[in-house]
C-alpha cells in the first residue's frame, strides 16, 4: 500500500511539473497564439541553472554555488525568461512561424550544449547530487514523496492562480485580442509586439521553473530528461486539455501523464525485452495521432476556452 502511495506521489510530482510547463505554454499559445517548439529547451535551461546554483562545488565544473533551492528556482526562472525574451525579440516582429523555427533551433542548441559543454553541464553523464527538498527525511520514502508532491502541487496551484488573475486582467484581454485579429495586432504596432514579448517571456519563466522543479524532485539531471518528445508531450497536454484554459492545461497534464505511464506499463508487460524500443516508439505514434485528431476534431480540447470562441483554434464550426 505504501509503495503504491509513494508511486502515486511521484507520478503526481512529474505530472504537475509538466503541468507548470503546460501553464507556461498556455500563456504563450493558448492566450497569445505564439508557437513554441522548444518547450523542453526552456525547461532544460531552468533545470541546469538551478542545478548549477544549488549543487556543491565540483572540480572541473563551473557553478556549484551551494545556494538554497529557492535561490535556484528564482535563478532558473530568470535565466529561462532571459532566453525567451532574446528569442522573442528576434522573431516576434517577423512572420509568425519564424518563432516556431527559432524555438526549434533553440531546442537543438540547448541539447547540444547540454551534451557537449562538459565543464558546465556534465555532458551526457549529467549532474547528480542535486539538492532535494525535505532531504532531512529522505530515508522515509512515503512522507518524503508526499511532502515533495505537496510542494509541487502548491507551486502549480500558485502559478494557476497568478495566470487566472492575468488572464482576466486588461493585460490578458489585450493578449487575446492580438491572438484573434492579426490586423488589430498590427494596428497596435510596436506595442502589440511588446505585449507578445511579455507573454512569451513569462511563459518561458514558468517552463524554467518546471525544469528546475523536476531536477530537484529527481535529484539528478541529464540531457535525456529534455528531449523533443518532452516538448511534444507538453503540447499534447495543452491541446487535449484545452488551449486557452488554465484548468485545461493542468487537467491535460495529469491526463496525458497518466496515459503515458499506463501505456508504459502496458508495453513493459506485453512486449518482450528486445522489442521494448519499438513499443516505446509506438507510444509516441499514439500520442501524435491523439494530438492531431484533437486539433482536427475537437480544437478546443476537453475543457476549451470559456470566453471567446477562438478563431485560431478553428472555432466551433
Amino acid at each position: 500500500m505504501s509503495g503504491w502511495f509513494a508511486y502515486a506521489c511521484t507520478f503526481g510530482v512529474l505530472a504537475l511539473v509538466q503541468g507548470i510547463a503546460c501553464l507556461g505554454l498556455n500563456l504563450q499559445w493558448g492566450q497569445t497564439g505564439l508557437f513554441n517548439v522548444g518547450v523542453a529547451a526552456f525547461m532544460s535551461i531552468g533545470a541546469y541553472t538551478s542545478a548549477l546554483v544549488t549543487t556543491a562545488a565540483i572540480d572541473g565544473r563551473l557553478g556549484g554555488l551551494g545556494m538554497p533551492i529557492v535561490v535556484g528556482l528564482v535563478a532558473a526562472m530568470a535565466v529561462a525568461a532571459l532566453a525567451s525574451a532574446a528569442v522573442g525579440a528576434l522573431t516576434l516582429r517577423l512572420r509568425t512561424d519564424y518563432l516556431a523555427i527559432a524555438t526549434f533551433g533553440v531546442a537543438v542548441v540547448v541539447d547540444l550544449v547540454a551534451r557537449n559543454a562538459v565543464s558546465l553541464t556534465g555532458g551526457t553523464l549529467g549532474i547528480s547530487f542535486i539538492p532535494r527538498p525535505f532531504a532531512s527525511f529522505a530515508d522515509r520514502p512515503v512522507p518524503f514523496a508526499f511532502a515533495t508532491f505537496v510542494l509541487v502541487a502548491l507551486l502549480a496551484f500558485g502559478a494557476y492562480l497568478v495566470l487566472e488573475r492575468l488572464a482576466t486582467s486588461p493585460w490578458g484581454r489585450v493578449l487575446r485580442a492580438i491572438r484573434e485579429d492579426e490586423r488589430a495586432a498590427a494596428s497596435l504596432g510596436k506595442s502589440g509586439a511588446w505585449y507578445r514579448l511579455q507573454a512569451f517571456t513569462v511563459g518561458g519563466a514558468l517552463m524554467g521553473l518546471a525544469g528546475a522543479l523536476e531536477a530537484h524532485a529527481i535529484g539528478f539531471l541529464s540531457p535525456d530528461n529534455f528531449t523533443a518528445s518532452v516538448t511534444f508531450q507538453v503540447w499534447a497536454m495543452l491541446v487535449v486539455g484545452g488551449s486557452g484554459n488554465n484548468r485545461g492545461a493542468l487537467a491535460g497534464a495529469v491526463l496525458v501523464s497518466a496515459l503515458w505511464s499506463l501505456t508504459g506499463l502496458a508495453t513493459a508487460a506485453w512486449f518482450p525485452p528486445d522489442e521494448q524500443a519499438r513499443a516505446a516508439a509506438l507510444r509516441i505514434v499514439a500520442i501524435g495521432v491523439l494530438l492531431t485528431l484533437t486539433i482536427l476534431w475537437r480544437p478546443r480540447g476537453l475543457l476549451g476556452e470559456r470566453t471567446a470562441v477562438s478563431r485560431h483554434l478553428g472555432g466551433a464550426d
Binding site: 499559445w29 497564439g33 508557437f35 517548439v37 509568425t96 512561424d97 516556431a100 511534444f232 503540447w235 499534447a236 491541446v239 501524435g288 494530438l291 492531431t292 486539433i295 482536427l296 480544437p299 478563431r311 485560431h312 483554434l313 478553428g314
Partner: peptide, 12 residues
C-alpha cells in the same frame, strides 16, 4: 489557421 497547421505538422 496557419499556425495550427504548423503545430499539426509537428505532431505529424
Amino acid at each position: 489557421a496557419a499556425v495550427t497547421a504548423v503545430m499539426a505538422s509537428f505532431g505529424v
